[in-house]
Amino acid sequence: MTFRLSNNLLGILNLVTFLFSIPILGGGVWLSRKGINECEKFFDKPIIVVGVILMIVSVAGLIAACYRVTALIWFYLVIIFLVVLLGIYNTVFALLVLNKGAGEVLSGKGYKEYRLQDYSKWMQKRVNNESTWFTIKSCLADSKVCTNFHTHHLNDTVQEFYKAHLSALQSGCCKPSNDCEFTYVGPTNWTKGKGVFTNNDCNTWENDLDTLCFNCKACKAGFIDNLRTESSKVMVINIVFFVCLVLVYFVACCAFRNTSRDKF
């Protein structure tokens, strides 16, 4: 009996997925061996895991489609179903933990201030973990977010600087908090006043480009807010991915039904 359309389509989809898994796996292996900084090495294991899972599932789908193996199609359906559930869980979870919090608008300033207590407790706990934050700090340093900030605003007057539209990371990590009321000398060079600061970030700030406010709560808040912005972009990709996954699941269900009919 000739293959039905759903079996052929399932085979084609899994062939594409298998080919797609090769560069993903290769990229993860490359990062684990050639990654030159913490940012790159931080992502190698998740990428390798995704690549291996994608490859295994694709091979199972290909064999199931070509040879109409009922057990493999069952396995394929279960895995795809679990991936869909996991994706929905991660999306809802991300919305819950990243939905809370926003930057504070300042009068006469072009940028916002970011306060850690405004964000979810779960995210606060994550960034307050020393090991986690050390990795994030290394990533921020490697990305030169504050070095580029320093170069871009080096010749700004104080009035020009206050009108600048800064990103959440630049505002939280590369300059002192507005509460400190330091005297502006340069974008990363501020003169501390004398007295007791109510905001501990003021004591943490250093003019050294390697330190600045990377250990400040404002920097952690800026990182979370930047994560919120980036996650909204990823959410669109997730929706497209879920639609494609549901389509694959539907085709796999049809293939399973066809295989079952052919055997009986």
Rank of each mutant, 00 (worst) to 15 (best):
R228A: 04
P187D: 01
T157L: 02
F149Q: 01
C244T: 06
S138C: 07
Q159L: 06
Y119G: 03
Y249G: 07
V158K: 09
W190R: 05
E130M: 10
V246Q: 05
T183A: 10
E230R: 12
C173K: 01
A221F: 12
Q159A: 09
K144W: 00
T188W: 13
V246L: 14
C213S: 14
C139I: 05
A141Y: 04
V185N: 15
C139N: 05
N207D: 11
V127W: 06
T183W: 11
L166M: 11
W205M: 03
Q124P: 02
Q117T: 10
F197H: 11
K194I: 15
Q117W: 06
F241G: 04
K217R: 08
P187R: 05
G193H: 11
F182K: 00
Q117E: 10
S231M: 13
V158C: 02
K163V: 10
L166K: 03
D156P: 06
V243I: 15
V158D: 12
V240T: 11
F241A: 07
E181P: 00
D201K: 13
S171A: 15
T135C: 07
A221R: 00
F223A: 10
N215R: 08
T229S: 14
V234A: 13
H165F: 05
N215Y: 12
N129H: 07
Q117M: 09
C216K: 05
M235P: 03
I224N: 02
V234L: 14
L247F: 15
V158L: 04
C173H: 05
T229W: 10
F241H: 01
V196I: 13
D118H: 10
T198L: 12
S120A: 14
T183Q: 15
P187I: 03
T135I: 12
N129V: 04
L140W: 00
A168E: 04
L245W: 10
V158I: 08
F182I: 01
K220Q: 12
G193I: 11
R126F: 11
D201A: 12
S177P: 02
S167N: 01
L247W: 08
C173M: 04
N148Q: 13
N215K: 07
V251N: 02
K137Q: 15
N226F: 09
W133F: 09
K121S: 03
E206Q: 13
F149S: 02
T147L: 13
T211S: 13
S131F: 07
L227N: 09
L154K: 10
S131L: 07
K194Y: 15
N200M: 05
N129P: 08
K217P: 07
A218G: 11
S231T: 09
C146T: 07
N129I: 03
K233S: 14
S232C: 08
N203A: 10
D210M: 14
D179C: 01
V234G: 01
